[in-house]
């Protein structure tokens, strides 16, 4: 069953020196599965994720032939209905909790904000739900975390709060934009397994955006490889190591391997032709 299908998505920024296309005709579809999007920085993967939520701010523009989520075309949805989808049915976890949590709002207030404002829930009920959500992301002392300020949390703790906050309304689709890149390596695995668990048990669709090929191949079912705003290759995650496209192969060759040859890693060969295919 298709949850989301995107056809010919383009994101354009009107700058002083003329329009710049950040995403150029990306199409993909997604069921209740885990889709990985990989690419270098600037390849348009973040923009693709944010386009699904229609959260590109001017001077950026989103265009697409169709962007259908659960039978509704997101491109034609008026803003109030789009807002009703955000949070409740489509959610997003961002890269660095240091920046993605509001610094002057207590964690508890941010967790319950959606329930209180959007779903008009009573303070007590919202609090109970928030505490349960914190427990679900394996926070041991949820009462205390509710009263904490974001800057008092460590990176891993902050990202768990972020995941809890986004998963409270049990969305159908979660977009995770480099959710572990800002974290210590030791915490990364923990946060990932929490995320993995929740996605599996709740049966939601996941778009996992990352620059880390190995992570994506381990964590996702299917992978899109993006380069300069285009999808250059789409393949099953377990086949990633056998990728055919020279760009993907190039990316793979740049990964250091334990026990591999001790020659310098090759520089990535970028061909302008790939972006035009």
């Amino acid at each position: 069953m298709t949850l989301l299908s995107v056809e010919n998505l383009r994101v354009t920024f009107d700058t002083e020196t003329g329009p710049v296309q950040a995403v150029r005709g990306v199409s993909f579809s997604l069921g209740r599965e885990r889709l990985g999007i990989v690419g270098e920085s600037g390849s348009g993967k973040t923009m693709t994720g944010r386009s699904v939520l229609r959260l590109i701010r001017p001077p950026g523009r989103i265009e697409a032939d169709a962007m259908v989520f659960d039978g509704q075309d997101l491109m034609r949805l008026p803003e109030p209905q789009m807002r009703a989808l955000r949070g409740r049915r489509i959610a997003m976890v961002m890269q660095d909790p240091k920046f993605s949590l509001n610094p002057v709002m207590k964690v508890g207030a941010q967790l319950t904000e959606g329930l209180r404002q959007r779903d008009r829930m009573s303070a007590k009920e919202a609090r109970t739900k928030a505490l349960a959500a914190l427990e679900a992301v394996q926070i041991r002392d949820p009462e205390r975390v509710m009263e904490a300020w974001p800057h008092e949390l460590s990176g891993g703790m902050g990202q768990r709060v972020m995941i809890a906050m986004m998963l409270i309304p049990e969305p159908d689709l979660l977009i995770a934009d480099e959710p572990t890149s800002a974290l210590d390596v030791t915490v990364q695995a923990e946060v990932l397994s929490i995320l993995d668990n929740l996605v599996k048990t709740r049966g939601m669709g996941l778009i996992f955006i990352s620059h880390d090929l190995r992570l994506v191949s381990r964590f996702c079912d299917r992978v899109l490889v993006m380069y300069k705003g285009r999808v250059v290759e789409e393949l099953a995650a377990r086949d990633l190591m056998q990728a055919r496209h020279p760009y993907t192969q190039g990316l793979l060759n740049c990964l250091p391997r334990i026990g591999g040859p001790r020659t310098p890693l090759p520089a990535l060969d970028r061909s302008a032709a790939w972006a035009k295919e």
Partner: peptide, 24 residues
Amino acid sequence: EYITTARVKGMPEGRVIWVHGLRN
């Protein structure tokens, strides 16, 4: 980025501006 978070949560633009933005 926290402004984006508030929008992702589905908060109306008025609340994003006058509560999240202005408080900071």
